[in-house]
Design a protein around this nucleic acid. Structure first.
Length: 182
DNA sequence: CTCGGGATTGAG
DNA sequence: TCAATCCCGAGC
């Protein structure tokens, strides 16, 4: 497989997280695993924004785990949940400001959508685990992102409450989950 | 299973 | 007194 011609660059990620989250819809998450390449259309994401966001791991400040979120934008933040699943996040905003976009659902051509329609499921399918934590997504190796096809018109972005964050008090109400029809 | 917080322990 | 260690709750 040839080197990708279009890779989303670091400036794209170094912006307001809510903007980046919505701009990622319709983009492609590309995974090269031992020479096999999948191009996954991003259809659902959630934003996690700053220490004030009680739903974010960073709400408790800098810890060894959250260090990735405080780092440079354009890196992967991968963590394990429930001891079974991995979740893939894309680090956003400037260094030292903790924020990221969780990839919740993707669609891959000729793959049953039920295999990739959840954050844990898509990591399982794309062989994404903590070895890819802090991976630089702008290198065009192993895991990177490519822009939307400008020819394809994006359906209206749906905004809704984030999933599975009942503990986050008032932050539960934020409409920081974004999706497109897929 | 992994993390992080509070509780407990124990060295000095 | 305080840091290392234990333990428990929570996590899409």
């Amino acid at each position: 497989m040839q080197k990708p011609s279009l890779i989303i660059n670091r400036k794209f990620y170094e912006r307001d997280t809510l903007k980046v989250a919505q701009d990622l819809l319709g983009c492609f998450l590309v995974r090269d695993y031992r020479g096999k390449i999948w191009r996954a259309l991003i259809t659902e994401v959630e934003a996690y924004l700053g220490e004030k966001d009680l739903a974010s791991h960073a709400s408790r400040g800098r810890t060894p785990r959250t260090e990735t979120m405080y780092g440079e934008p354009g890196y992967a933040y991968v963590y394990m949940i429930y001891g079974i699943y991995h979740c893939l996040n894309i680090v956003t905003e400037k260094k030292d400001f903790p924020a990221a976009v969780l990839i919740r659902s993707v669609r891959i051509e000729s793959v049953d959508h039920r295999k990739t329609n959840g954050p844990g499921k898509l990591c399982n399918f794309l062989k994404i685990d903590r070895k890819l934590n802090r991976w630089d997504l702008t290198k065009g190796e192993k895991l990177w992102l490519e822009p939307r096809d400008p020819k394809i018109k994006l359906s209206k972005i749906q905004k809704s409450k984030r999933i599975g964050i009942d503990y986050a008090q008032h932050c539960r109400e934020y409409l920081w989950r974004f999706s497109i029809k897929s």
